[in-house]
Design a protein around this nucleic acid. Sequence first.
DNA 1: CAGAATCCCCCACGATACTG
DNA 2: CAGTATCGTGGGGGATTCTG
Lengths: 109, 109
Amino acid sequence: MKMKKNVQKAHCAVDYAFQRIGGKYKGRILWVLREGRLRYGELSRAVVGITPKMLTQTLKELEADQLITRKAYFEVPPKVEYSLTDTGMELIPFISQMRSWGEKQMSTN
Amino acid sequence: MKMKKNVQKAHCAVDYAFQRIGGKYKGRILWVLREGRLRYGELSRAVVGITPKMLTQTLKELEADQLITRKAYFEVPPKVEYSLTDTGMELIPFISQMRSWGEKQMSTN
DNA sequence: CAGAATCCCCCACGATACTG
DNA sequence: CAGTATCGTGGGGGATTCTG
């Protein structure tokens, strides 16, 4: 697996952080993984509206960025579980904060 | 000034929040405005690498989203100041934490 | 000084279909 | 079940020039 960073050339730490969890689905995926591992199919149901292509692609980016871990079980039928790394878990409090802010905004608008 | 929301159809509060401060420069602009108002020219120097087009465009979006306020002084030469709204200020703790996380990540990688 | 106006390109993302 | 493979597109963003 490639381990390249999905961060181009950050002008500052804010820039860097936003590049790392930017994209349309990264925040939501990290968020639904907050309570434990989920299988691919569970993720695709939890992240409403995501296509298999985008799910797979985003999961790969998050893995390359070491925010999540992929664990494949060699069984039939196939089974793959995704979970947060320690670094990924460190983001949950912030995302939680963002979520509270978002909830408040959505209700007052 | 148009007041449309730059948020399409959020699937959840996390989605909503990320749409609202997504984009390449929004986080950085909010961050540099944390300590007070800045003029257009000061912003363009503070947000290194941004073009006038993107600065103007992003400022308009942030204003339409009610995260910043624009105040124009009718003088010669022109003078325009931007500052955070209360709603925008509420995001600063979050961005601050993201920034700390980013700094840590940048140093340990 | 603080933008507006154009032109243009790339790629994130979507839709659809297929597979070990 | 957990993905690939292809094809297509819109708009986010860049470069450059102009102006009240």
